[in-house]
Amino acid sequence: MIVNVPNPVIEVHDLTVIYNRKPALWDADFTIPKGKLVGIVGPNGAGKSTLIKAIMGLVPLSSGHAELFGKPLDEVRQKVSYVPQRESVDWDFPASALDVVLMGRYRHTGLFRRISKKDRNIAFECLKKVRMEAFANRQIAQLSGGQQQRVFLARALAQQADIYLMDEPFAGIDATTESAIVDLLFEMRSEGKTIMVVHHDLESAYEYFDWFVLLNTRLVACGPKEEVFTQDLLVETYGGKMNVLAKIGELIRENTFPVREDNSPLR
């Protein structure tokens, strides 16, 4: 089930990534429309992170390519922001929260240039948006996991991009941060930004996102949540070996959305 859209902002063509002769992502081919909050969902090792890394050109592609706004990444980098996994960096680095957010302005500042007052103001505003302004000068190791994640989001906001690719922003954070991030994502969507988020909690996924990419090394489905977030497709994505499935059945029933278009009743 792959729903293609006209005038997509993200277009992925036959993308294949191979690590050590093992395919991590296999022939992914889909399109994403503008202004959607997209959840990338699938079991561990399904290639979710690999997919956004491949779109950002961070891993070598074995075949295929990705286009953003109909152009190759290099031509539109300023409009694209990437949020790596929080664990991918060493937080015991000598930097403050504001320092990290300022990194989102480096591209605008340019090589050899010093950071301007304007960049500083933008960075501080972004910290405010994630409610972290009180921690601007705090050494990043002294922040909690959720606060570190918010600093990463503030850095992404500082890039003032139109497409955001986020790798597990909800992993290992507190409830306050989770709701703060969700509010922020909704606000960004209402401003017309397109956001792709790697996510692994199926229960909250249905609530947060309005478009889904279901992945299990190969692309299982891609489309609006009403059409794609179905029991059949989720079973296919998780290969049937998932206890959560029972819960999802309930979830689908509770939310009373059609599992199939012909409205065949659920057992």
């Binding site: 290099d74 990437y82 060493d90 591209r107 850095r155």
Partner: peptide, 22 residues
């Protein structure tokens, strides 16, 4: 001195440095 902020970013988060096109 010239590359100070670039080296800083490269040391802290090379993937992000790559993603912004450094």
């Amino acid at each position: 001195i010239l590359f100070f902020k670039e080296f800083k970013l490269l040391s802290f988060d090379p993937d992000f440095a790559h993603s912004i096109g450094l």
